[in-house]
């Protein structure tokens, strides 16, 4: 009986608010991704975007009473960890090349 009470409390207005919060976090991360010039900060901004998406997934999981959303977040965390390790390895390598974290230092890579 307690569970039905709790599930009723997650209604449409609640879901929409969580989705809006996820969208706001995604937009903030996107601004950081495009505007920062430090390579580490660029990847940190993508992590903000990941978390905005994770909020959406968990909210829908809660709304539809379905564990699929939580499973997707597990996969999302896996991909985020893999991305962070590879990206930071690349950052270390690039920093050894030019002694700077500025992405503009690598603008000569364009084809």
């Amino acid at each position: 009986m307690m569970i039905t009470h709790v599930t009723n409390s997650f209604s449409d207005p609640t879901l929409v608010r969580y989705l809006a919060l996820g969208a706001v976090l995604f937009a903030i991360g996107l601004v950081g991704f495009m505007a920062r010039r430090n390579m580490i900060m660029i990847f940190l901004s993508t992590e903000i975007m990941f978390q905005g998406v994770a909020i959406n997934l968990i909210a829908f999981s809660r709304y539809y009473h379905n564990a699929d959303g939580q499973s997707f977040v597990i996969f999302l965390l896996t991909v985020a960890a893999a991305e962070a390790s590879l990206a930071l390895g690349l950052v270390i390598m690039l920093f050894r090349q030019r002694q700077t974290l500025n992405v503009d230092a690598w603008s000569d890579l364009q084809g």
Partner: peptide
């Protein structure tokens, strides 16, 4: 927020 959405493991 995840705790509020009953996703305590996540």
């Amino acid at each position: 927020l995840f705790l509020l959405m009953m996703a305590e493991f996540i």
